[in-house]
Amino acid sequence: MKLPHPIQYQGSKRSLASVILRYFPNKFPRLVEPFSGSAAISIACAARGKANSYWINDLNKPLAELLGLIINHPVEIANYYETIWNQQHDDPIEHYYRVREDFNRTGDPRLFLYLLARCAKGSVRYNTEGLFNQSPDKRRHGTRPETMRDNIFGVSTLLKGKSVISSLDYKDVLSNVNEDDVVYMDPPYQGVCGDRDSRYFSGISYEEFLAALSELNVRQIRYAVSYDGRTGNKTFGNRLPESLSLTLIELEAGRSSQATLLGRDAVTVESLYLSSRLAIEVKASPYFHRKRETKQLVLMETRRRYAAKISKRIP
Rank of each mutant, 00 (worst) to 15 (best):
R290Y: 11
S175G: 01
D172K: 01
I165K: 00
E281Y: 11
N176W: 03
I152Q: 02
V75S: 11
Q220W: 14
R149P: 12
Y23R: 02
Y189R: 04
M148S: 02
R290T: 09
L261R: 10
G107F: 12
Q8H: 03
S202Y: 10
Y273C: 02
R303C: 13
K160C: 13
K2W: 09
Q8A: 00
L168Q: 06
S15Y: 00
Y126C: 05
R30V: 14
S243F: 09
Y170Q: 07
P188M: 02
D186G: 07
S275D: 12
G107N: 08
I43R: 00
V75C: 13
N57G: 02
M185F: 08
S38H: 08
G130T: 10
S12I: 04
P286K: 14
A212W: 09
V192T: 09
V269W: 03
Y126H: 04
Y306M: 11
G37Q: 06
R199P: 05
I20F: 00
F24W: 08
V164N: 04
I20G: 00
F24Q: 03
N52L: 15
Y81W: 11
Y97G: 07
D108A: 09
E293Y: 14
G232V: 03
P6V: 08
S156V: 05
A120F: 15
E293T: 12
M300G: 12
S271Y: 10
L297E: 15
V182F: 15
A284C: 10
S15D: 05
V269D: 01
Y223D: 06
N176R: 04
L261N: 13
Y273A: 06
A40Q: 04
